[in-house]
Design a protein around this nucleic acid. Structure first.
Lengths: 245, 245
DNA sequence: TCGAAAAGTGACCAGTCAGTCACATTTATT
DNA sequence: AATAAATGTGACTGACTGGTCACTTTTCGA
């Protein structure tokens, strides 16, 4: 049984969170290497030495606390989105769309955490420190394992093609992240608030793209005509995710 | 008319290239921020101050020379892969597969350049220096513009769904890069030379995934059954790209 | 051969910054 | 109220590194 928190414990946790938030903003703004403890401390309204009271690992401790947070929440989102209850009441296409939308919204709400991950993950995965690389591998594997469960169920039910579920989960996650990165980049460079990113449209585009593919149905045959032939045109139109940008 | 190079010019160029190669290895190994001019100079077998003879921009000049190289070659690869001649003689699916395979092979051959891009691009795109961010945006746009031409042609011919060609080009490039990153990560972490990455399998997987999507053909209907229904199973099997890993 | 130009060198320097810790302040306990 | 424990501080320090430049070496042209 977990003992109730004392006021002191709650205050300590609150101060730790304030420092962590300040760190996340600085990491997201500047990148980890360029972010300075002086700035983080100032932003959190503490002295620089105090940061070590709350994060034994110092700067790096703050970074990995941030990654933990993002990965934990991403895993929870997968479990919630593909719960047995939901999967039993909605089509996989619907559940997939909802998950994609939730995921994009999740990233938008946690833009800073997401940007930290985007900026630092590859640096570390391909870096010299094997402990860090392994950390990302492990956390990534957990996400992919979680997503591969509903993917496998959809394959067993005949909805999805029979492919390696892990590979499919990997492609799904990668595409969601990719489109979110693109959206943030567009937002950064154009700075048009009136044309903000529409996660619904993006989720719709992704669902169609990932489930149905790019090829037109009339052309999914082994004996395909060349582009120079006068093939019949299918004018099926998919609304573009970039319409709202 | 370009004057023939003198021996001195050729030697100067050769030395510049040696320095650039050494820089690329260090950037790929360590990341740009952690790579040191001292190490680059030693690797190229020059004194540190000599580097500025060949790269006025110093460390950063080497980095951007590397990016230019990678982007130039990537653009050339798109133009070659989707030339009018090739497009007139092969199906789009075949051309697409060939391009995907060429691209993967290209990245494997230029692993260091690719890793530099992977490590640094997002840091810079989301960084404070607008000039750098703009550089990547411009180069990325050029790649996407180049690829959107054949994509648009395939749409006009009815092979691909009608979507925003730029968005589609973006997804194609993103997925190729994503799968290559994954392959390098797997290779880094497992270090099994006997199970090296098979670009052919990956290209095949990507072609199927991107053109045909994940959904089984029997399920591409508006009135989809739920997963709990006893839907007929289509046992179509797609060989996984991860089989060779 | 000599002087000028080109090329090369690495010690030096200024600037940077994460982590440390002696000291100070605040809070809790007796 | 006095003492102990908890919390906070920022000057200091050691390590680091890109860029500079006085000096050296090599190459080239007359």
């Amino acid at each position: 049984m977990h003992a109730p928190q004392t006021r002191r414990e709650r205050e300590r946790l609150s101060r730790r969170n304030a420092i962590l938030e300040a760190a996340q903003k600085e990491f997201a703004d500047k990148g980890y290497a360029q972010a300075k403890l002086e700035d983080i401390a100032k932003r959190a309204e503490f002295g620089k030495g105090t940061l070590y009271n709350y994060f034994k690992g110092g700067k790096q401790g703050m970074l990995f606390a941030s990654f933990d947070q993002l990965f934990d929440d991403s895993e929870a989102l997968i479990h919630e989105s593909f719960s047995n209850d939901i999967m039993g009441h909605k089509s996989f296409r619907e559940v997939f769309y909802d998950y994609t939308l939730s995921c994009l919204t999740f990233y938008i709400d946690r833009k800073e955490l997401f940007l930290i991950l985007v900026k630092e993950a590859h640096l570390m995965c391909f870096g010299d420190d094997q402990k860090h690389a392994q950390y990302f591998r492990d956390r990534r594997d957990r996400l992919i394992d979680a997503l591969s469960v509903p993917v496998r169920r959809a394959m067993d039910a005949g909805f999805l093609r029979t492919m390696d579920p892990l590979a499919v989960a990997h492609m799904i996650l990668g595409n969601i992240e990719g489109i979110q990165i693109h959206a943030f980049l567009e937002g950064e460079l154009q700075q048009k608030e009136s044309e903000s990113f529409a996660p619904e449209k993006a989720a719709h585009f992704l669902t169609t793209f990932l489930l149905d593919g790019l090829a037109n149905k009339n052309h999914n045959h082994p004996n395909e005509v060349h582009l120079s032939d006068n093939a019949p045109h299918d004018s099926s139109h998919v609304q573009s995710y970039s319409d709202g940008i």
